[in-house]
Simulated scan of single mutants.
Amino acid sequence: MAKNAPYGDGKRIGPVKERSQFQTPSGLWAKRDSNTGQIMDVKMDGEPFKGVRRERK
């Protein structure tokens, strides 16, 4: 029997829109809003954000 996919459990399908990430000179990853250019968050463990596209150098 067919069943519907689980919805509403926080699973993301595809990349996050209107955001990008880049690596700072210190090696941390920062998330930037593509519309305003403001830095939204910095990840302190040194791993990149999941599902957020990377900026080209």
Rank of each mutant, 00 (worst) to 15 (best):
Q21G: 00
G37E: 07
T24P: 02
V42R: 11
D45M: 12
D45G: 09
A5E: 14
R53V: 00
V52T: 05
A5V: 14
W29I: 02
R32N: 05
S34Q: 13
G8T: 03
Q38I: 10
P6F: 14
G51E: 13
G51I: 12
K3F: 05
K50P: 04
S20L: 10
K50F: 11
S34N: 14
T24E: 09
V16N: 01
P25Y: 07
R56S: 07
S34P: 03
S20C: 10
P48S: 06
E55F: 04
W29N: 01
M40W: 06
Q23N: 05
G37R: 08
E47A: 12
K50Y: 07
G14D: 04
R54I: 07
A5I: 13
P48Q: 08
F49V: 03
I39C: 08
A2Y: 12
R56A: 13
R19W: 00
D41V: 13
M1Q: 04
K43D: 06
K43E: 07
E47D: 09
P48R: 08
A2C: 07
D9G: 06
Q23Y: 03
K31N: 03
A2W: 07
V42H: 09
D9M: 09
Q21F: 00
E47R: 13
V52E: 01
E55H: 08
R19F: 00
E55I: 07
V52N: 00
M1N: 05
G8N: 10
G14V: 00
R54V: 15
P6G: 15
Q21V: 00
F49C: 04
I13E: 11
L28E: 11
S26M: 13
Q21T: 01
G10W: 04
F22N: 01
Y7C: 06
K31S: 03
K57Q: 14
K43Y: 08
R56Q: 12
G14H: 06
G46K: 06
K57M: 10
R32D: 06
G14C: 15
R12V: 14
R56D: 10
R53Y: 00
G37I: 05
D33E: 10
R32S: 04
D33W: 07
P48T: 07
R53E: 01
S34C: 11
K17P: 03
D45E: 10
T36H: 15
P6M: 15
N4D: 15
K3L: 08
N4E: 14
G27P: 10
D9W: 10
K43V: 04
R53I: 02
R53S: 02
F22C: 03
K3Y: 06
E47K: 11
G37S: 13
K43T: 05
R56Y: 09
K50L: 15
G51Y: 13
R32L: 13
P15G: 09
T36W: 14
Y7H: 05
E55Y: 03
Q38F: 12
R53H: 03
K43R: 12
I39S: 05
Q38A: 13
Y7V: 15
Q38N: 09
F22R: 01
L28I: 12
D45V: 07
K11D: 06
G46M: 10
P15T: 06
G8P: 00
K31H: 05
P6A: 15
S20W: 00
S34K: 11
N35Q: 11
A30D: 02
K3H: 12
T24C: 08
G51M: 13
N4F: 14
K43L: 13
K50S: 12
S20Y: 02
I13G: 03
G27Y: 15
V16R: 01
